[in-house]
C-alpha cells in the first residue's frame, strides 16, 4: 500500500537553492513549453507558414519576376528618395537595380514581421496560455522563484523567435541571391545594413513583441485574447516597422544602430515593468 519515500536531490533542504538547480528549473520550464508548443498545430502552423511565405515564397516569386524584367527602370522611384539615400542602388548597373531594390530593400521590412509575430504568439501561449489551460495554479505551487519563472517564459518566446528569424534570413538570402544570380553574377546579400537589421534590430523587435505581450497577457484570460489585445498594439508597430525599415536600410550604420537601441530600450522598459507585476500573488489573485 505504501510507497517508499524518494531520495531527495542534494541541496534540497533549508539551504538556498544552488544556482545550477535554478538554472535547471528554468531549462525545465523552457523545454516543457517548447515541447508543448511543438505539439500544438494552432501555434506551430502560423509560426512556420508566415516565415515561409514572407522569406522564401515571396522573394522567390518577386525575384524571378524582377530578374526576368531587367529592363524595367526604377529610376523614377529612386528619384523620389532623399538625395544620397538611393545612391547604393543608382550606382549599380541598370539591370541589377530592380532585383536589388526589391529583394534587398523593399522586402526587407517584411522580415521584421517574423521575429515580432513569433515572439508575440509564443509569449501569449507562455503567459496567458497557462491561464487558459488552467495549468497556472499548479505551476505557481512549484518551488521556483517568480523571477526565474518569468525569465523562463521570456526565453521560451525569445529564443525561438530569434532562431526562426535567423534561419528564415538564411533561407531568404539564399533565395534572393539565387534568383538574382543570372542578373548579378555575385552574392549581394547580406549587406552590412542587413546584418545590423538581423543581429541587432530583429532581436530588438522580438523583445518588443515580448514586452507588449507580457503586459497584455497579464490582463487576458486566454492566449487568443492576448493575441487580439496584443494585435491592437503590435499591428501598428508592424506597419510602422514596414514604413521605416526601408529607410533603415538606406541610412548610415550608426543611425541603424541607434534605431535598434531605441527599440531595445522600449522593449526592455516594457519587460521590466512586466517583471515587476509578475508575482505569484498577482497571478494567483486572477486565477
Amino acid at each position: 500500500m505504501s510507497i517508499a519515500a524518494p531520495e531527495l536531490a542534494p541541496g534540497l533542504g533549508t539551504a538556498p537553492r544552488r544556482r545550477r538547480e535554478r538554472f535547471d528549473a528554468i531549462r525545465a520550464v523552457v523545454a516543457k513549453d517548447l515541447t508543448a508548443v511543438r505539439r500544438s498545430k494552432a501555434v506551430v502552423l502560423p509560426m512556420l507558414l508566415v516565415p515561409v511565405l514572407l522569406l522564401i515564397v515571396l522573394p522567390l516569386v518577386i525575384g524571378l519576376m524582377a530578374s526576368n524584367s531587367p529592363a524595367v527602370s526604377v529610376e523614377d522611384f529612386l528619384g523620389r528618395l532623399p538625395a544620397g539615400v538611393a545612391d547604393p542602388i543608382t550606382s549599380l548597373p541598370r539591370e541589377e537595380q530592380m532585383v536589388v531594390l526589391i529583394n534587398g530593400y523593399l522586402l526587407a521590412p517584411l522580415f521584421l514581421i517574423v521575429p515580432l509575430m513569433i515572439s508575440a504568439v509564443l509569449a501569449a501561449d507562455a503567459f496567458a496560455g497557462e491561464k487558459e489551460r488552467k495549468t497556472l495554479e499548479s505551476l505557481l505551487h512549484l518551488p521556483m522563484p517568480d523571477r526565474d519563472l518569468f525569465l523562463a517564459k521570456l526565453i521560451t518566446a525569445f529564443l525561438p523567435a530569434l532562431a526562426v528569424s535567423w534561419i528564415g534570413f538564411l533561407c531568404f538570402a539564399t533565395v534572393a541571391n539565387t534568383v538574382a544570380w543570372p542578373v548579378m553574377h555575385r552574392l549581394f546579400l547580406p549587406t552590412k545594413l542587413w546584418m545590423v537589421m538581423i543581429l541587432w534590430v530583429a532581436p530588438a523587435v522580438a523583445a518588443l513583441g515580448l514586452g507588449v505581450m507580457v503586459r497584455v497577457s497579464a490582463r487576458a484570460r486566454t492566449a487568443q485574447e492576448a493575441n487580439q489585445l496584443g494585435g491592437a498594439v503590435i499591428l501598428p508597430l508592424i506597419f510602422l516597422a514596414m514604413g521605416q525599415a526601408t529607410g533603415l536600410l538606406l541610412v548610415d550604420l550608426p543611425v541603424a544602430f541607434a534605431i535598434g537601441a531605441g527599440l531595445w530600450a522600449l522593449a526592455l522598459w516594457l519587460i521590466a515593468r512586466g517583471a515587476r507585476r509578475f508575482t505569484r500573488d498577482s497571478l494567483a489573485a486572477k486565477v
Binding site: P6, E7, A9, G11, L12, D24, A25, A28, L142, P143
Partner: peptide, 10 residues
C-alpha cells in the same frame, strides 16, 4: 525537474 529530483529517482 523543478523540484530538483535526480532524473533516475524521479
Amino acid at each position: 525537474r523543478i523540484r530538483g529530483l535526480p532524473t533516475g529517482v524521479a
